[in-house]
Amino acid sequence: MSALVHLDDVWKIYQMGSAGVPALCGIDLDISEGEYVAIMGPSGSGKSTMLNLLGCLDRPTRGRYSLGDRDVSSLDDDELSQIRGERVGFIFQSFNLIPQLTVLQNIEVPLFYRGVPRHDRHPRSRELARLVALSDRVDHKPAELSGGQMQRVAIARALANDPLMLLADEPTGNLDSATGSEILTLFDQLHDRGRTIVMVTHEDFVAAHASRAIQLLDGRIESDRRN
């Protein structure tokens, strides 16, 4: 089985004035289709940096990254945008919904940038809203929703373009434990249906949902376990 994600000696070095601050130091990693990976590690160990790289929000300073059948380590800005829209679904700790848009309109944003015509967007976004159990809230603005509901909108939005993988950076970090486990249950369901998920978390009980746990320390992979 070929790897969905293939990182080969990937470095990320932030330039701070004259000094380079290494955030990732020579990461080698393969993630296969259908895996549910938890990335763990202390604060500042490079978890978010790694997730941003995987999601093509950023480019590695050094090394090779291929996503699916494409080497994405040397794409230009427009191509990266396109990859993000088509192959990646982001879920953020702070939800990052667009406040002036309704639930349905928020879900449609990735479809819009992919060029899906209006009359095809509507049925798709309604179906996604139903999937995350928000059919009765489609015309609400984010401010009128609870945190858990907002995160469910974000998950529906991340699924809109049927991406190769979902990337979640501490998706339960802003939620109470009951709502958090609701979201994790949703992740479990998605994983059961074959979704590839990469999730950053601090908490062991959250990581326990995943099929694989990667520990980062100072930009290096300290351990890589399968449950």
């Binding site: 999601g55 929000l57 800005d77 427009d78 945008s81 396109q82 993000r84 829209g85 088509e86 982001f90 990052n96 919904l97 667009i98 406040p99 944003v109 990735p110 940038y113 992919r114 939005r157 373009n161």
Partner: peptide
């Protein structure tokens, strides 16, 4: 600015 960031993360090109 944040909205712009969100749109960029979701596939918007600079041009969009």
């Amino acid at each position: 600015t944040r909205e712009i960031g969100i749109r960029r993360a979701l596939g918007a090109k600079k041009r969009d």
